[in-house]
Design a binder for these strands. Sequence first.
RNA 1: GGAGCUAUAGCUCAGCUGGUUAGAGCGUUUCAUUGACAUUGAAAAGGUCAGUGGUUCGAGUCCACUUAGCUCCACCA
Length: 730
Amino acid sequence: MDKAYNHKDVEEKLYNFWEKSGYFKPDSDTKKQPYSMVLPPPNVTGTLHIGHALMLVIQDILIRYHRMKGFRTLWVPGTDHAAIATQSKVEGILYKEEEKTRFDLGREEFLKRVEAFAQTSHDTIVNQIRRIGASVDWEREAYTLDTERNFAVRTAFVRMFQDGLIYRGDTIVNWDPKMKTTVSDDEIEWKEEQVPFYYLQYGPFVIATARPETKFGDKYVVMHPKDSRYLKYKHGEKIEVEWINGKVTATIIKDDAVDMKFGTGVMTITPWHDRTDFEIATRHTLDMEQVIDFNAQLLPIAGDLAGQHIKKARPLIVERLREKGLVVKVDEKYVHRIAINYRGGGVIEPQIKKQWMVNVNKSFTMQHSSMQGIKDGDSVTLKQLMKHAVSSGQIAITPQHFIKTYYHWIDNLRDWCISRQIWYGHRIPVWYKGEKMHVGTDAPEGEGWEQDQDTLDTWFSSGLWTFSTLGWPKETKDLRDFHPTSVLETGYDILFFWVARMILMSTYLLGEVPFRQVLLHGLVRDANKQKMSKSKGNVIDPLEISEKYGTDALRIALIYSTAAGNDIPMSEDKVRGMKFFANKLWNIGRFIEMKRGDLSADDVQAVENIWELRNFATHETDKEIIEEAEKLIEGVTEHIASFRLHEAAQLLYQFVWHTFADTYIEDVKTRLDAKSYVVLHSLFLQQLRLLHPFMPFITEEIYQTLPGKKSIPSLMIAPWPTVAELPHNA
RNA sequence: GGAGCUAUAGCUCAGCUGGUUAGAGCGUUUCAUUGACAUUGAAAAGGUCAGUGGUUCGAGUCCACUUAGCUCCACCA
């Protein structure tokens, strides 16, 4: 063995060796118990960051452990087209490099650009996944927007439509005038901004607003029914008021959505551009009028200000109100929260628009269910399904406290808007011809049909991921063998976006849970507990780190000292420490290799089973180390089985370095004979196996380099150590 | 407004179902060694486990309250 471990020479070589040997594919022995996972597909918007590395490492540890345990493991890789995120990225580049918008190129040409970008990203990402050492089955790689997944999406849409769960209707949506699309509530980022807050005279009332540009059409004035200050005004009463562009007739509305303590307790409403106002207007069947168009410009209702962008119009309106003496007071220090599309950066302007929606509260008849507690023919809602899957214990969530958060989210869930006015994504499988509409997996026969222009929310397709990757809606063998999947491991930040939607889709479409266990990890932060971001310049690039210290050092550093679900402070120091550990491991290997030569005992065989090793113990310390090693095996196994990977890693680190190397080797090195050599060598091989899921490259390299016959060609498929002989039928 | 998390050594964190003297990494101090490994070894200093009260034979661990920090959800015109 070389004096130092050189990860650069080893990693690529070993990964190719593993892949070529077919170890990433499920074992052909179908009698083995299956263990399956899908990789949360990274967005094809660029490159992988350290959070992705963490996710890959945790999942790879689980997969490698179960593979060695004798399960028939499958880990399906893939990438996500991330509709709006990818499109917005390409639009940004397009504008920067050519000063063009997507409308300049047209749908077809623009999509070609996006696809080219996505392909490049995809290639980078795949390469990065390999570098981390992830033992995924590349033959089953999927893309959320490929042909097979598109068929799954269309099938799902049609099924939901036929069950009356998808409808098209006028709703108030979050409109991004910059990207020209709706975005979901979850895609909004709130930003605080200090703006002037205007108190305006509105007839006998004073109303308050931060957005005077929406106020042109306001003809309803709303107050709380119990507000003693305004009891003399009756619901439905009409009054004449002087307003921005002259006199209007206002109607008094009483509604308890009004907060009596806020402002003056009176407000005028703009139902077309505000969710709360929209809801009030819906309750009292009031008129709704659009004031701002989809480019964020004022409509003719604004009189001579029509056509102005709202940002420019605001000061002009305030000026006019001032002239008319309608401005009572201005609070300059008001903190207003504005909604921003966090994918594209546009300021959200609520609008009423026709959208495709999923009704989460509508009862439908369950066609097929293999879930406990829900039978075929039961009447349920999607919300109930989502809740039931977890409350019945058919899906476990680790850490447990996220269960409460999950329920809380479901309770507050509104209908899910699934249409997007962007081009990159799954086109909605609906066709129109005059007044006629066709909903189906394929275009209808005949001339003149035109497909809906909108595409689907990206989460609609990723919601199908656990089974669309296995071939659904075809009844494939993979689907039978590997669904429900065993574990879904992902960051807690997408519990709602993604995990909840997978539960919705799987319980509804398949009548079974998508996975039995949800395992959530935290955010990787920098050494100062700051979120990593490009603008802060504190981003740690996983590939750079793995290049410098070795992938194994990065892997174990990522999971070493943090409990599941907690955020992880990451520093280079930590990785460096783990590189030292890798070096220690390497040198134990060198020592063992060297001593075998000293003993000129090339026929000394390693003992496979630890319980047979006691026959070779000649000293008290030999017995002790065997006992300790047994405890290690039990401890590591138990910790991994309970998802305490950090505990398992800590046990291994302590044992290998401080018990095995510092204590036992120091003791045995002066009295080494053929018998104690067997103990030394065999125990080390056990440790390599236990460490292999955590540090696959160096353990495999040492294993391959150590002298002696190998009955097993790779650590990847070596049996996981146990402390006692198992009955043969187990 | 609603919900959740965190508080343990100088720093970053472990501590699973309550059970001897509370652990690790990094950092600090002292000593040793070119021996598989200076990417080393031996040792040391450093903690009223945020505070108060409770349950218990026994609490870092369970319960209540207080304080401080963080996060998520909803959202006020």
